[in-house]
Design a protein around this nucleic acid. Structure first.
Lengths: 345, 345
DNA sequence: TTGTATGCGTTATCAG
DNA sequence: CTGATAACGCATACAA
């Protein structure tokens, strides 16, 4: 017998039921309750009924913290993203939260801020919190670090192609997406197509550049370095890119930006110079952010299924968690032609 | 003595150090280690040094899960938001993550999806995970439910004015913000100003409507119900609102939308009808989303310090957690005049 | 000031 | 199929 003494506030807190209390109420041992809770073993129908009733009566639900300590499972999976408020990754987080939640898991979000060291720290935090697995959205971490991590915990990573035990990777075809976007402009009759790159060194940025270049060269047009300007994936860099393009006197009739945010910036910079989209220059982005459909003019772009990506990553994690090899396939890139691109007259 | 048998994968996992191991290494008792870890009592400098060294050597860090079970503190605080990918709340989440992280706390994000029942479920999840406190961003929950919750746990809530023990609320002055926006248009010479409302029933939406109306009437202009059209805080509803305004043949020279997203939608709808911002109609939004500065034209709007809001909410929680009464003041609303509004000619 | 003993709520390993 | 019993890693009365 024990006397509860820890009534912090004088409030009448509805005493949280414990597994032990359920066992007592049902007249069985705690182990039995645990077993039917986890499906760890077969129990007689009668006892099961008794326990189910007790659980319902007491409104019992297992304590994840205790579970974590005892069994090593916390029913939580860590998600390292780059910034919790990214317009692009937001969708993925949402998708992850959704499917994880359906399975009784809770996501633990941490932001790496595009910094490998910071990401490593994040992973340590997640580790110390005993997450059951980790999902890494396009991290800066080395493949090797990820592999090492996967030795201890199931890992799902997006934005790379990695194969390792306990590790599943999910990649979007950035090359094909960029090729599609460029081809779209080519089909519209554009020949002088500028390209605003993403953060150099990012695999996806590099792939997009490759896609652009491939499309250009496949059309028997000479690749012109003067038409590719660096960007850092944010609006301001899109503006700056256009400024520099204009300053250099480059001649172009269309711009393909490696992501929508830069495309928005580019459109604004063009506007400031009296150039209008799509009348004076056609513009295509990449990502299909929610905002792309409502910009003026609505932006033609490559659709990235971010929510779906999150859902798939979470599904893969769930499969990993039960020891299965994930069978997940990524949707292929598709172009969403809106009003920012039009045929060259 | 115990033999570790649970080597799941054959990998050489750097055996996670425990408090007990540190104690052994330092030649002291576990309680002593615990004490210096929590500052629960004074320990002799020598022992402290020994322990500190052992901690460093072993790379020990306390296990939050065990801590949670034993002491009831998990160093995690629950954050219920409406959708993890909201362009507006994203900033707040980021701010929360930041200051919480600095203090060694981890946020646990859950989405209520603008549904009271769902939010209640979220709170239960957080409870079961033994969070040390809960931050609620503009929930649908009743004040009463929140108060009840605060009896058990520290609660910080934004978007309302509530007073209760263990509860701190943090509200943005929506009324003043809306008044400011409307006055701005008035100052520009506009007399027929349409208003696109937010979700009716939301306190902030109601306040913004009140601010609009107050400004209008203070200018000795009759409030015209035909000029206020309902919206639901998303782009599509902004478009619809403008459509309905146009359809009704309402005459107006400016529009004030209760948030930026609806303003974007409104601008697009106007554009489709050959009306341009700000030449044909001036437009003002509310929130100052990151995208507002890069829309075409850049949107005049009321700045909401979302990141700061998050930081403040987290700071308040931290204070609550140490038993102090938070002393936090919200920044006042301010207008950011960009290019979407101009003087009526 | 420091160590000892217990308990937190579950799961896991044993016997029976 | 079921029930004791021992961890899980730490905090905390209590004793010394």
């Amino acid at each position: 017998m024990k006397i509860k003494t820890s009534v912090r506030a004088g409030a009448r807190i509805p005493q949280k039921a414990t597994l032990g209390m359920v066992a007592a109420a049902a007249g069985v041992s705690p182990s039995t309750v645990s077993r039917i809770l986890n499906g760890t073993a077969v129990v007689s129908p009668e006892k099961r009924a008794e326990v189910d009733k007790a659980i319902a009566d007491l409104g019992f639900s297992p304590n994840p913290v205790a579970r974590g300590l005892a069994g090593g499972r916390t029913l939580s999976v860590g998600v390292v993203t780059q910034s919790i408020d990214s317009p692009f990754y937001g969708g993925a987080l949402s998708g992850i939260e959704d499917v994880l939640g359906m399975a009784g898991y809770s996501p633990l979000f941490v932001s790496g801020h595009w910094d490998a060291a910071e990401e490593a720290r994040c992973i340590n935090v997640l580790r110390s919190r005993c997450v059951d697995g980790i999902i890494v959205l396009t991290g800066r971490l080395s493949d090797q670090a990820l592999r090492a991590c996967a030795k201890t915990l199931p890992v799902v990573v997006t934005g790379r192609n990695l194969k390792a035990p306990g590790l599943f990777s999910l990649n979007f075809d950035n090359f094909e997406g960029a090729r599609l976007a460029t081809q779209h402009l080519l089909d519209l009759g554009h020949q002088r197509i500028a390209f605003i790159t993403g953060e150099p060194g990012h695999p996806d940025a590099d792939e997009r550049l490759r896609g652009y270049r491939t499309a250009i060269e496949s059309a028997a047009i000479a690749f012109d370095p003067a038409l590719v300007v660096p960007g850092q994936y944010h609006e301001a860099s899109g503006m700056k890119a256009v400024e520099s393009l204009l300053q250099c006197g480059a001649s172009f009739t269309a711009i393909f930006a490696a992501n929508d945010q830069m495309a928005f910036g580019a459109a604004l910079a063009l506007d400031r110079h009296g150039l209008h989209v799509p009348v004076d220059v056609s513009l295509v982005g990449f990502d299909d952010l929610a905002a792309a459909a409502y910009s003026i003019p609505p932006l033609s772009t490559i659709h990235q299924p971010s929510v779906e990506l999150g859902r798939l990553a979470a599904s893969a994690m769930l499969q990993l968690l039960v020891g299965k090899k994930p069978t997940i396939v990524m949707p292929v890139p598709s172009l969403v032609a809106r009003s920012s691109s039009r045929a060259l007259v």
